[in-house]
Design a protein around this nucleic acid. Structure first.
Length: 357
DNA sequence: CGCGTTTGACCAGCGC
DNA sequence: GCGCTGGTCAAACGCG
């Protein structure tokens, strides 16, 4: 543990890395090979009911089929308008959107309405996203998905010949922030933690998780915002190559509210939160019960995407992948890809209209 | 015993 | 080239 502290301190003391600015962050959120992030302040329990339309690489608010739901307090939102793309027309609610110049490539400095917390959080996410997306955009086109396995195979570990494929491919990523005391949000999949690292500019370590499913190379990073410890930044990378587990960790999809999963942040200390979405159980409900009346705390959710493949419908990619594996209850569990890990379909509009091709 | 976590070390990429 | 950081590996360990 002492060493851990050391690492942290090192990271903190290290000023080699310039203070990350958004300027060179994710190039874009609107599809085209970019990413973005948003930050919503959402009443606790609302997440369970939240849903967005197919995230086809549009703006964050395009995720919201309808204007911001009544109980959804859009506190902060960051998006990354691509320098080369025109921002999509945004719904009325988007008036609350703050397009942060510094998040655009051209950026300078500014951003009035973005709080430091979300700023920082998104920053963390975007930082890496962008860093890679640049190089990945080129590389990824050459290779295909299997490389994760191949890496391991080719990694004949004698001592530590971790020579990986130079053209390491990065899968599309999807990041979001949640305001929660709990780090590891249970999205229904089973994850194995394979690493933890101290990150610079943050006193909180970042943990690395991998889907335990064989041949599924989906990874997940979890970290806390250095600025606002209550914010958990979760980044998914890759696409699940297997059906959505109906009984992950014992009880996905059949979690009664009484089971203590009613809302976010309700639990404490445990490694798993009630961050469960797309439960058939919820589908019965209407958009009414936003709240589960847990506590007065609120949960928040934000997005940051990196479309390394430069496809406008990057996230649709997820969705399609997931649809390839209709589950027994697929009729109920509309497949929304990783998004459904994050956003309960209740609020997503199930209309297939945005399923661009 | 199987599975998941912890942890120290290694590697690659990047900036200076 | 060097140092830093992020990402990953895998042995050791813990837990049920």
């Amino acid at each position: 543990m002492d060493k851990k502290e050391e690492l942290k301190n090192n990271a903190e003391n290290s000023n080699l890395m310039a203070n990350s600015t958004f300027s060179d962050q994710i190039p874009a959120v609107y599809g085209g090979g970019g990413g973005g992030s948003g930050f919503f302040e959402i009443p606790q329990g609302y997440l369970d009911m939240m849903s967005f339309q197919d995230y086809g690489g549009a703006s964050v608010f395009d995720l919201l089929q309808q204007p911001t739901p009544p109980n959804l307090v859009v506190e902060k939102l960051q998006i990354h308008p691509p320098s080369t793309l025109e921002p999509p027309s945004l719904p009325p609610s988007v008036s609350t959107v703050t397009e942060t110049p510094e998040m655009v490539n051209t950026s300078t400095q500014n951003s009035s309405s973005i709080s430091s917390s979300s700023n920082e959080a998104a920053n963390n996410v975007d930082q890496e996203n962008n860093r890679r997306s640049a190089q990945e955009n080129e590389e990824e086109q050459h290779e295909d998905v299997e490389d994760d396995d191949q890496e391991k195979n080719t990694t004949n570990k004698q001592l530590k010949p971790k020579k990986k494929n130079p053209k390491k491919q990065r899968e599309p990523r999807f990041a979001f922030m949640t305001k929660s005391d709990i780090d590891h949000l249970d999205d229904g999949y089973r994850w194995r933690k394979y690493g933890q690292k101290a990150v610079k500019n943050s006193p909180f370590p970042r943990s690395y998780h991998r889907c335990t499913s064989v041949a599924c190379g989906v990874k997940k990073r979890v970290e806390r915002s250095s600025d606002d410890p209550s914010i958990v930044i979760t980044t998914y990378e890759g696409t699940h190559t297997h059906p959505y587990p109906m009984t992950p960790r014992g009880s996905i999809g059949i979690l009664p509210e009484s089971a203590g999963y009613g809302g976010l942040g309700g639990g404490d200390g445990l490694g798993v939160s009630s961050f469960l979405f797309a439960q058939p159980h919820y589908q019965q409900q209407q958009l009414q019960p936003y709240f589960h009346n847990q506590t007065s705390t609120s949960s928040s959710l934000s997005f940051s995407t990196t479309n390394s493949s430069a496809h406008p419908s990057s996230y649709s990619h997820f969705l399609q992948e997931r649809r390839a594996f209709p589950s027994p209850s697929s009729s109920l569990l509309r497949d929304h890809g990783l998004l459904q890990d994050v956003v309960p379909f209740q609020i997503r509009k199930d209309e297939p209209k945005k399923e661009q091709n």
